[in-house]
Amino acid sequence: MAFKIFMCVFPLPLVSLPPLNCRKCMRYVAGDVLYVLARKYPGFEYAALVRSENSAARVREAYPNVRVVLGSLDDADLLKREAAWADLVLRHHNNAADASDHESAARAIAAGLVEGHTESRPGYWLHTGGTGILTYFDTVENRFGEPPGRIFDDLDGVEVLTSFPDEAFHRNVDKVVLECGTAHADMVRTAIVCPPTIYGNGRGPVSGRSRQCYEMAKVILTKGYVPIVGTGLATMDNVHIQDLTQAYILLIEAALAGNASPELWGARGYLVAATGEHVWGPLARTMAAKTQEMGLLKGDGGIKEYQMSKEEALETAGFEALSWGLNSRCKGRRLNKFLGWKAEHPSLNDEVPGIVRSEAKRLGLL
């Protein structure tokens, strides 16, 4: 019997989103994972939740053997049925901008996994959270553009990551996943994967563009200044999209092998997929310098810096710009220790020319 995967990752929300627009990032990550899976494991049975006919047509064209499931995250019965059918559910968070991740969808998936699986045939749930949860302490203290205050650790400090305050980004759905993976550990194995800032071109059929760094390049290209939030010393972790995809592949292969390690699943199954880190101010300066070198800025003078307040950042590029003033740092050691995951693709700094080039092409400047 073929291994069955339900990818609850392509839906478009029924309501418009705030500026962060995580639905695009969601499709970006999901598309890259499916690109690799479909080639490496063509014998698997795949089902993908898709909200719009337009996206459905693109998925069908790229992957004729994928069963498209038209629906939304509000279709609880559908989600429950598909989760019961699948051996593994891959689901991304919905909307990080206001921390309103779709909790009812998560509960429907949990119910379906419990209903459709047994100890002899366990179900697996790979849920994508995000290290946006780590910005909680900056936001609650109204700190923007300041140096980092603390570094988390997903190996020695995993209990801290699984016990954030309820109002933190993603926490409402994290709790549902953790509860399912502990209360029903004999039949459902859960893992929460938390990527930080993602960069690199995605290989999926719907969206190949990430957000934070690409919006920074857009501001530099269109407004002609270096955007700095506060002191510019806020720091975040990062990961190349193809390295992130490999983390999912390793977890799926662990599921295939029947790996039931409590270090990967359940109460301790909280894995930060970070391979590097960057400071937002220096990154903006590097990006602006590369933009000048490529001849994409008008005028002969040097590009000036513009220091933004929290309100100006939101007005300039929504939550993406605000994130340039937030800290999110965590030692992502669990994936490496237990699955041998490591960076194999260019660093964010090395990728800067490619980010500028791709954004310039998207804007019609190249």
Rank of each mutant, 00 (worst) to 15 (best):
Pro165Asn: 06
Trp265Lys: 01
Pro13Leu: 14
Gln307Ser: 07
Thr182Asn: 06
Asn172Asp: 05
Lys24Asp: 15
Pro282Glu: 11
Thr235Arg: 12
Ala48Met: 10
Leu335Lys: 13
Ala86Gly: 04
Val158Ile: 11
Glu82Asn: 03
Leu322Gly: 08
Gly301Cys: 01
Tyr28Thr: 14
Leu221Pro: 14
Arg189Asp: 02
Arg171Ile: 10
Ala289Gln: 15
Asp300Glu: 14
Gly266Trp: 05
Leu363Phe: 06
Leu126His: 06
Asn142Glu: 08
Val219Tyr: 09
Glu115Arg: 13
Ala38Trp: 02
Lys310Thr: 09
Val66Glu: 04
Asn54Gln: 13
Thr231Lys: 05
Val226Asp: 15
Leu251Thr: 08
Glu61Val: 06
Leu88Val: 11
Glu359Lys: 12
Asn259Leu: 05
Cys25Thr: 15
Ile198Ser: 12
Leu178Arg: 13
Ala254Pro: 07
Val160Gly: 00
Thr182Phe: 01
Ala257Met: 03
Ala2Leu: 01
His278Gly: 04
Asp153Val: 03
Gly123Ala: 06
Glu179Thr: 11
Leu37Cys: 02
Gly232Met: 01
Tyr199Val: 14
Arg81Ile: 05
Leu264Glu: 07
Ile303Val: 15
Glu146Ile: 02
Leu339Gly: 09
Gln292Phe: 09
Val9Leu: 13
Tyr270Ile: 07
Gly130Ile: 15
Asn336Ile: 00
Ser261Glu: 09
Ala234Asn: 02
Lys337Ala: 15
Pro122Met: 10
Asn327Met: 11
Cys330Tyr: 11
Glu311Phe: 01
Ser323Asp: 09
Ser309Ile: 06
Ala360Tyr: 10
Asp77Tyr: 01
Pro13His: 10
Leu283Asn: 08
Asp101Ile: 09
Val239Asn: 08
Ser358Gly: 11
Trp85Gln: 00
Glu82Arg: 00
Ser358His: 12
Gln292Met: 11
Tyr35Trp: 09
Leu366Cys: 10
Ala183Gly: 09
Ala108Asn: 08
Glu45Arg: 00
Pro205Gln: 03
Val15Asp: 08
Val50Lys: 11
Ala108Phe: 05
Thr222Ala: 05
Arg67Ile: 04
Met216Arg: 06
Leu244Arg: 10
Val176Ala: 12
Ala288Cys: 04
Ser261Gln: 07
Phe144Asn: 03
Lys24Ala: 15
Asn94Thr: 15
Pro13Thr: 09
Ser358Gln: 14
Ala2Gly: 03
Asn349Pro: 06
Asp154Trp: 03
Val219Phe: 11
Lys298Tyr: 04
Arg211Ile: 15
Glu312Met: 08
Val193Gly: 07
Asn259Cys: 03
Pro42Val: 00
Asp237Gln: 14
Val206Cys: 09
Val239Gly: 06
Leu12Ile: 09
Leu155His: 00
Pro147Asn: 05
Lys80Asp: 04
Phe10Val: 13
Ala2Arg: 01
Leu271Cys: 14
Gly269Lys: 02
Arg334Cys: 12
Gly266Asn: 04
Gly301Asn: 02
Gly112Asn: 08
Arg143Trp: 00
Leu34Trp: 07
Met287Arg: 10
Trp265Pro: 04
Phe6Tyr: 02
Gly71Thr: 03
Pro18Ile: 03
Ala38Tyr: 02
Gly224Trp: 05
Leu296Met: 02
Gly325Arg: 06
Ser309Asn: 02
Val206Asp: 06
Gly204Arg: 04
Gly302Asp: 11
Gly301Ile: 01
Arg39Val: 07
Phe169Tyr: 10
Ala97Lys: 07
Ala110Cys: 13
Asn336Leu: 04
Pro11Asn: 05
Arg60Asn: 10
Ala284Gln: 01
Asn94Ser: 15
Asp98Val: 12
Thr118Val: 08
Arg333Tyr: 05
Ser100Asn: 13
Tyr46Pro: 02
